[in-house]
């Protein structure tokens, strides 16, 4: 049996306008494999195709060419989705629900019965440190608190694969450290994690393996332990130093 949880083969994504004319080639012939139990980092500058790749893996976008498989099946299949947890780049919570109701709602969508959903919600709220505000509406939460609720709702169905899009975005340093510890703990329990991040230090701390995307193509990848330099140096060597931005010229 293959050990690959996610398999992308020759994946291309071309966005088109209303008249179906191609506008952007966001992903260009990408091959990717995420293995069971590893923490895989998808890195790259803005517009490199990370989010598009994640959305194709989740079945939220259809690839123009190539194949995407999750657990050996289509990402749109119920079986694949029942083993998945997803934290989007922004939390996108229902503002009129309380934190507890939010978790119970998503637990219900994962077919957990009422009692189990309630217990699971309480456990997760405890885990993300929101037990004290469990019955407050999330519309009034800070960005960091919303992020924790979103992370808890990604975990509510006890997924085998966790997809985290910029998980530390909007979190203070303490919360960031907690999220990183949580990811490590989940990985230690055998959960597979796919994570995207702009913060190379975060990726370096938690990832076993990375892939760097630029202009929709894979430009480098490998095990963190085998890079031979810091991730930041490796990244700048492969992607460039961002000279296009000409910040120094502007400031001068």
């Amino acid at each position: 049996m293959s050990d690959a949880i996610i398999e992308l083969s020759g994946v291309v994504k071309i966005f088109r306008d209303f008249w179906l004319r191609p506008t952007v080639k966001a992903v260009d012939g990408l091959d990717l494999e995420v293995r069971r139990g590893e923490v895989f980092g998808l890195l790259g500058p803005n517009g490199s195709g990370k989010s598009t790749t994640i959305k194709m893996i989740l079945g939220l976008l259809a690839p123009t060419a190539g194949s995407v498989k999750m657990f050996g099946k289509s990402p749109k299949s119920k079986e694949s989705r029942s083993r998945l947890g997803y934290l989007p780049e922004l939390s996108y919570l229902h503002p009129f629900l309380t934190a507890r109701e939010t978790l119970r709602y998503y637990a219900g969508l994962c077919s957990l019965d009422r009692k189990t959903a309630g217990e699971r919600a309480s456990q997760l709220l405890e885990m993300v440190g929101l037990s004290g505000v469990a019955d407050r509406r999330v519309g009034g939460f800070s960005k960091g608190m919303s992020r924790r609720v979103a992370l808890a709702s990604a975990l509510v169905g006890k997924p085998e694969l966790l997809v985290l899009d910029e998980p530390t975005s909007g979190l203070d340093p303490i919360s960031t450290r907690e999220v990183k510890l949580l990811v490590k703990a989940l990985a230690a329990k055998g959960m597979t994690v796919l994570v995207t991040s702009h913060l190379l230090a975060d990726a370096e701390d938690i990832c076993d393996r990375i892939m760097i995307l630029n202009h929709g193509k894979s430009v480098a990848g490998g095990r963190i332990s085998e890079l031979g330099s810091s991730l930041e140096e490796f990244f700048l060597a492969k992607v460039g130093s961002g000279d296009d931005f000409a910040l120094a010229d502007f400031l001068a």
Partner: peptide, 14 residues
Amino acid sequence: AAKRLQLTVVRPVS
């Protein structure tokens, strides 16, 4: 439009 639907769609729900 608020991108909340994607969180429902990725669940095993019909």
